[in-house]
Design a protein around this nucleic acid. Sequence first.
DNA 1: CTGTGTTTAAATTATG
DNA 2: CATAATTTAAACACAG
Length: 333
Amino acid sequence: MEGQEHADWTGGCYYETECYPAAASIVTSVSGYMSAPVAGTCHVNAHYGNPVGFGPSQSSGAAGASISPFCAPPPQGNGSAYEPTCSIRTRESKPYRRSYTHAKPPYSYISLITMAIQQSDNKMLTLNEIYQWIMDLFPFYRQNQQRWQNSIRHSLSFNDCFIKVPRSSDKPGKGSFWALHPDSGNMFENGCYLRRQKRFKCKNRSGGGDGEPAANAGSEGGSGSDPPTPSSSPPSTDPKDLKAPSPPPLSHHHLPIHLKSDLYHPSYPFNHPFSINNIMSEPQLHKTEPMVQYGAFGCPVSGTLMGAKSGLDVSHPDTNYYHGLYSRSIMNP
DNA sequence: CTGTGTTTAAATTATG
DNA sequence: CATAATTTAAACACAG
């Protein structure tokens, strides 16, 4: 069947031997900050450039600005931050342009969506913006759009961690904005962007019982107390809005109080060393540097998880994201 | 009609 | 190996 399509990533892997000598080493070397507590073992795709790394976070700026851990939005349109991928790194030495470009990024759609939303100014994006963001950063997704976009839509609707925020009014476009459920916490706190340990489930919903005991990310102290709604949440009439916490805030100033403050605190779930937040902000990116930082991202798997498996480690140079790195079948049958 | 959203169902894959 | 998370496909409803 459409094997051809898959061929893309089947063949091109991010872990070309040439490109990536030793994931582990890269991890450490390239991204020092990676050595976080949690991850005793973060190996895996250490090289995957930090997608969001593109911009230096505008650190400065207004007080509130600090909040924007994420840099500017992805380069719109052309020139994805990644295009050159591999080559960049070794630009001087060797132009490995081995397809890194065509390999499937080591992130689940959920994490991609989350990253996209997180890096947006208003912490919310339209479906199309999400598509764009992904395509801008990952050339891989410029192909088979229908396929993955359908998946994105599915992920958005299916996962409670994503909520729909109705458009304000002046926005002509169609569709609403998508944001992260405030209580979803740091879904990737384990450092794994391929799969969360537990799917975030919105407890509310009438019936109750429905099954799943609402798992959720635990936001540490979190105290799942406040509801998303920032006090002023007009009754959403939409059925789907069940989930929507609040109307279009737009701008940090309107973020739910708890959310807002959390962003400033280290306790904010996304502040975890491996959190998307950090990953994306990528402080050390020297704007001057060529770009693409192989950093954080690279290390999705936390010691807690895979590391535990002991020797798994690592990023096998000959594997690509799906086949190998994460599959023990290859490393440990 | 096309783009958005929802849902259902089945196939994959990562993890314990 | 069992289980749960994620990906893929597809059918449908709706709004612009």
